[in-house]
């Protein structure tokens, strides 16, 4: 059992990472990675939403009528997302504005629904919670890696603090979404050269 939990927790971080292996949640990972701060808050929001949604759906899993399964899941996910959005609006207003529509769009983030359908519906609440949290963390980790390079090279700063000398000319290409896709591609490349079994023949 302990081995199982460990696997549930670690698999989504690296070997089954939702972004680089399952290729889910690409849209928002391109959009919110211009600055580390935004990426960090987004990562945290997604971790909370995936974790709590999976937990609640898992609690309800035996009572949900199969025909309206997806709708009930959506209600739960939407509830969590709106709660996160409301809390951010109250306590991190500037970041909420910066993330703009993407907080609301966590609802459509395939990772959330994907993990509920694939895991939470068939597992107990605690493993489901861990699975959700771990998948959110796997997503967040990639977000933060991409944001690290984009903020460093695009603005010369990290978390808004200048780290590169003022003589560094910021690379505007890195700010634009295409560069996020290229960085993401590089991460996938690195991961697949380490993990040979992911390579397609």
């Amino acid at each position: 059992m302990n081995e199982d939990l460990k696997k549930t927790l670690l698999n989504p971080i690296f070997k089954g990472n939702p972004i680089t292996v399952l290729v889910l949640g690409i849209c928002s990972s391109l959009a919110v990675t211009v600055q580390l701060k935004g990426a960090f808050v987004m990562a945290l929001s997604v971790i909370i939403v995936t974790g709590l949604s999976s937990f609640v759906v898992s609690l309800l899993r035996n009572s949900i009528p199969n025909r309206v399964r997806i709708i009930v899941q959506l209600v739960v996910v939407a509830l969590m997302v709106i709660l996160v959005d409301q809390v951010l609006k109250a306590y991190a207003y500037a970041i909420d504005k910066q993330l703009s529509v993407y907080i609301g769009l966590i609802i459509t983030n395939c990772i959330v629904m994907g993990r509920i359908e694939a895991f939470a519906l068939g597992n107990k609440p605690i493993p489901s919670l861990l699975d959700g949290l771990a998948n959110g963390a796997g997503y967040g980790m990639i977000l933060i890696i991409v944001a690290f390079f984009r903020e460093l090279l695009g603005s010369g700063t990290l978390f808004g603090l200048r780290v590169l000398p003022a003589s560094y000319v910021p690379n505007n290409l890195v700010i634009l979404p295409p560069m996020a896709l290229i960085i993401l591609g590089c991460i996938v490349w690195v991961q697949r050269s380490i993990q040979k079994d992911l390579q397609e023949k």
Binding site: P65, I71, V72, V76, A78, L79
Partner: peptide
């Protein structure tokens, strides 16, 4: 069931 879920939410 759906009514209840929606009202609670």
């Amino acid at each position: 069931y759906t009514t209840l879920i929606v009202v609670v939410a």
